[in-house]
């Protein structure tokens, strides 16, 4: 099974890296970096903050979008267009198909995220005039790790839902997780003040969605605070468990799915 996962993962990785949408999104980040440089030169005071904010926001959005688009395209669309049947006709377990797809898309998103992060670090070094990246290296590395975790969560949801439901529904579900993740804690807090049934609903929403608000360290890095706190660590563990759970549910649903 491991070999099947590796083979499917490698093929998916190659397809994902060669996809036109990947090139377009990477070009968008490069455009945003240039924009950050221009805008930072127009601002009043503290230009490095603008560079860090715009560059890292673009990197975060693009890596999440890559995971979302490629995750859905490589599973839901392949199943919808029946091209997945050529792979599944071979002696390959359906769960290996899902896990291979997840590994391939996850690896592609990682392979895109880290060079982009390197590019951002170079830009910050240019703007800091001190040779370093101005912000503590541990904070910067921690922030990139948090972006990676968010990307992997979105990738897991895109692949799992893509294998289980129609592409449109999969896209809606993944977008819900990608955006709703930022509001899960806020919704829980708000609903907890409304009575027991609302509080229960808040708890359900919080546990159905990842806690992306806790996994966002950009503001903390920009304000010179530590990016990795106990809350962040706990949220990261929660997110990784969430990934495993979503993949498991995806595999179980896909095993029972009628493809003919």
């Amino acid at each position: 099974m491991i070999r099947s996962i590796a083979l499917i993962g490698l093929t998916t990785f190659r397809e994902a890296v060669r996809a036109k949408i990947t090139a377009v999104l990477v070009a968008f980040v490069v455009f945003c970096l240039l924009l950050a440089v221009i805008v930072a030169n127009l601002t009043l005071g503290w230009p490095i903050r603008i560079v860090a904010d715009v560059a890292l926001t673009a990197t975060s959005i693009v890596s999440t979008t890559i995971a979302l688009v490629l995750g859905i395209a490589s599973t839901a669309r392949e199943i919808d267009r029946r091209t997945a049947l050529y792979i599944l006709a071979r002696p390959i377990q359906r769960s290996a198909f899902i896990l291979g797809k997840f590994a391939g898309i996850g690896a592609a998103a990682t392979a895109i995220l880290f060079p982009l992060a390197g590019l951002v670090a170079i830009l910050l070094a240019i703007f800091s005039h001190s040779g370093g990246i101005y912000f503590p290296l541990a904070s910067f590395a921690g922030l990139i790790a948090l972006i990676w975790i968010r990307t992997i969560v979105v990738c897991a949801v895109a692949v799992a839902t893509g294998a289980s439901v129609a592409p449109t529904i999969s896209a809606i579900m993944t977008l819900t997780v990608a955006f709703g993740g930022y509001f899960s804690h806020g919704a829980r807090t708000l609903l907890s003040q409304q009575g027991w049934s609302s509080a229960f609903l808040g708890e359900v929403i919080y546990h159905l969605l990842p806690d992306f608000a806790a996994l966002d360290g950009l503001a903390r890095m920009v304000h010179g605070q530590s990016v990795w706190t106990r809350v962040t660590t706990s949220a990261a563990i929660h997110a990784l468990c969430y990934v495993a759970f979503v993949q498991l549910v995806g595999c179980l649903v896909f095993r029972r799915r009628e493809l003919s």
Binding site: T43, R49, I50, D53, V54, T57, S60, I61, F179, Y182, F212, A213, D216, L218, A219, V222, H223
Partner: peptide, 9 residues
Amino acid sequence: VGQYTTLAD
């Protein structure tokens, strides 16, 4: 969606 420092910028 978490990018409020960018919004402030």
